[in-house]
Simulated scan of single mutants.
Amino acid sequence: MRNWLLTILSVTFSFSVTVEAAPTPKAPGDKTVVLVHGAFADGTGTWDKVIPMLQAAGLKVIAVQNPLTTLAGDVAATQRALARAEGPVILVGHSWGGAVITEAGNDPKVAALVYVAAFAPNDGQSILDITKPYPAAPGFGELVFDDEGFATLTTTGMTNFFAQDLPIPQSSLMYATQAPTAGALFSEKITTAAWKNKPTWYVVAENDYMIQPDLQRALATQMKAHTSSYPSGHVISQSKPQETADAIISAANSVVMPPPPELHLLQ
Rank of each mutant, 00 (worst) to 15 (best):
A63S: 06
P52H: 04
P88L: 05
A77G: 14
L71S: 00
I62L: 11
H37D: 14
L71A: 03
A81P: 12
P28D: 08
A81K: 04
T24R: 12
N66H: 05
A72I: 00
I90N: 02
V36Q: 08
A76I: 06
P28T: 03
M53A: 01
G43F: 06
L71R: 01
R84G: 12
D30Y: 02
A72N: 02
A83S: 14
A56G: 11
H37W: 13
A22T: 11
A56D: 12
E20R: 14
V34G: 05
L71F: 01
K26I: 08
L59G: 02
V61A: 00
T18F: 15
T46I: 09
T32G: 00
K26Y: 08
V89N: 06
A57T: 03
A63P: 00
V17N: 07
V17L: 13
P23R: 04
A77D: 10
L35V: 08
A22E: 12
L35M: 11
V61S: 04
V19N: 10
P52A: 04
K31R: 15
V50G: 07
Q65K: 13
V64Y: 10
L54H: 02
N66A: 11
K49Q: 06
A72G: 02
K31G: 09
R80H: 10
I90S: 03
Q65G: 11
A83D: 14
A85I: 07
P67K: 06
I62D: 04
V34I: 08
A76D: 09
V34E: 07
R80A: 14
L82K: 01
H37M: 13
L54W: 05
T18R: 14
F40P: 07
V17S: 10
T44I: 15
G58S: 07
A81E: 15
W47M: 07
A39C: 10
V61E: 00
R80E: 15
G58D: 05
T18H: 15
A39P: 09
V34S: 05
A63K: 01
P23F: 05
P28M: 01
K31H: 12
A21G: 07
Q79N: 10
F40W: 15
G58C: 05
V34A: 04
T24E: 14
Q55V: 00
V17T: 15
Q65A: 14
E20W: 13
D42I: 06
P52C: 03
G38A: 14
K60V: 00
Q55A: 03
T44E: 15
V61N: 01
T69H: 10
A27M: 05
V75W: 09
V89F: 08
T32P: 06
D74A: 11
T44W: 14
P67M: 06
V33Y: 00
G87A: 01
G43D: 09
A76L: 05
G38T: 11
L54E: 04
P23N: 06
G43N: 06
L71N: 03
G58Y: 08
V64I: 12
A63G: 02
A27G: 06
A72Y: 00
T70R: 10
W47D: 09
G29Y: 05
G43Q: 04
G29S: 07
T70E: 06
P88A: 10
L59A: 04
T24M: 15
A83P: 04
D42E: 11
I51T: 10
K31C: 06
H37Y: 12
D48S: 13
K26T: 13
A85Y: 12
E20K: 15
N66L: 12
Q79D: 09
V36I: 09
Q65S: 14
G43L: 04
E20P: 02
